[in-house]
Simulated assay, not measured.
Amino acid sequence: MNYQIITQLKDLEQVCLQAREADVVMLDTEFVRTRTYYPQLGLIQLFDGETLSLIDPVALDEMTPFVDLLKDTSVLKVLHACGEDLEVFQNAFGCTPTPMVDTQIMAAFLGHGLSTGFAALVSEFVGVDLDKSESRTDWLARPLSQKQLDYAAADVHYLLPMYNKLLDKVTESGWWDAAKQESALQVAKRIRPSEPEKAYLDIKGAWQLKPNQLAILKPLATWRLKEAIKRDLALNFVFKEQDLWAVARFALKSPKDMEKEGFDIRSVRRHGAKLSSIVKLAEHTPKEEYPAVVERLMDFPGYKQIFKVLKDEVKLASEKSGLATEFLASKKQLNQILSWVWKHKRNPEKLPDVMQGWRLELLGVHLDKKIK
């Protein structure tokens, strides 16, 4: 397995121009995400079938040739389980690989579970057992060890023969267009812009709060998300979710009250005054501007019964198609269609996953008929 390490702009230009001559390239990234809001890019692996390059974004100040490759619509980019890779590309370069297909999704169209790992598929389709021990090492440290470099190179080296095998089988089974559709759906989901004004809806336990308490939680959650983005810090490292909820629940108006509740002292000292001012201001919110109570689907009449009916429909579609039930429609996706019907009155602008693309005819129309 031969590879080159790219740390100079002229070399980056050369390998990216060469890659743009190919119809298909293999891509992967190594990143670190521990305390940060955004994943921190440590390494990019690129294989065009002839040249395998490990691109060092830590050493390179200029990445335009690579961005041009990402945007080149004449080159299909192949990745595996690329959800976080998409976030990495979007954050680092303001774009995602276009067009793109995910081999984990391709495997799912052959009956594999959606969470099937790279090593398992390489073992099955290529007959090679990979060492995955370096997956959680520090990819921002320099120099990278030989073991890290070999590990990173293997991820795209074996991705190519695995992709070729999957492509033959997926094409033969008639799912190739669907695999591209599903990959595009993953891109759309991963690069949705953050909505600070709706951040309170993601706070665990928001449904337990009354409208006047939600009027406090809403600006608190908005502040926390904006602070996390500004400082590139994971949300709970700004202020813990459960503590933020408690501030809203009990309308805590002083750092002293927060300390009495057992909140992290450092967080209170850093943000207590700001949170107190937000609470005091929010308490003057007019009643007509209170957020609506957060409705849980499970509290809707007949939720358990209809959910079971939908699960049975998914099982039937699974038996008919050979696709895994969790890939056809996860619990989240079933709740999505219920929300679409019950909360959004089948708004065509808010279509759930099962009511579009390849899922619509196979499953969506059947599920829709079951919901009143």
Rank of each mutant, 00 (worst) to 15 (best):
Y3R: 12
Q4M: 09
Q4R: 14
Q8D: 07
Q8T: 04
L9E: 13
C16E: 09
Q18E: 15
E21R: 12
A22V: 03
R33H: 04
Y37C: 01
Y37Q: 00
Y38F: 15
Q40S: 13
D48P: 13
E50Y: 08
S53K: 02
L54A: 04
A59F: 06
L60T: 11
M63I: 09
T64A: 09
P65R: 02
P65S: 03
V67S: 08
L69R: 00
L76D: 12
H80D: 04
Q90M: 14
V101G: 09
V101F: 12
D102C: 11
A107S: 14
A108Y: 13
H112A: 12
G113R: 10
T116W: 05
T116K: 14
T116Q: 12
A119Y: 09
L121P: 03
V126Y: 07
V128A: 14
L130K: 03
D131M: 12
W139M: 11
K147A: 13
D150P: 00
D150R: 10
A154K: 08
V156P: 07
V156A: 08
H157P: 00
Y163W: 14
D168M: 01
K169W: 02
T171Q: 09
T171C: 02
S173G: 01
W175P: 05
W175A: 09
W176F: 15
A179K: 13
A179L: 10
K180F: 05
E182G: 03
A184R: 08
A184F: 02
A188Y: 10
A188G: 11
P193N: 01
S194D: 15
S194G: 02
E197W: 08
K204H: 04
W207T: 08
K210S: 10
P211G: 04
Q213W: 01
L214D: 00
L214M: 04
L214W: 00
L214Y: 00
L217G: 02
L220Y: 04
R224M: 05
K226M: 11
K226C: 10
L233P: 00
A234E: 08
F237S: 12
F239N: 04
E241M: 06
Q242H: 12
Q242F: 07
L244V: 01
L252E: 05
M258L: 01
K260F: 00
E261G: 07
R266W: 02
V268C: 07
V279D: 05
L281D: 04
L281H: 06
E289I: 00
E289N: 07
R296T: 15
R296P: 14
D299A: 11
F300G: 02
F300C: 12
Q305M: 13
F307N: 09
F307A: 06
V309N: 03
V309E: 09
K311M: 11
K311P: 01
D312Q: 14
E313G: 03
V314D: 06
S321H: 12
G322I: 08
A324K: 11
F327M: 10
F327S: 12
A329N: 00
K331L: 02
I337Q: 07
I337N: 03
S339Y: 10
R346E: 12
P348S: 02
K350L: 06
Q356M: 15
G357L: 04
L362A: 05
G364H: 03
V365M: 03
K369H: 02
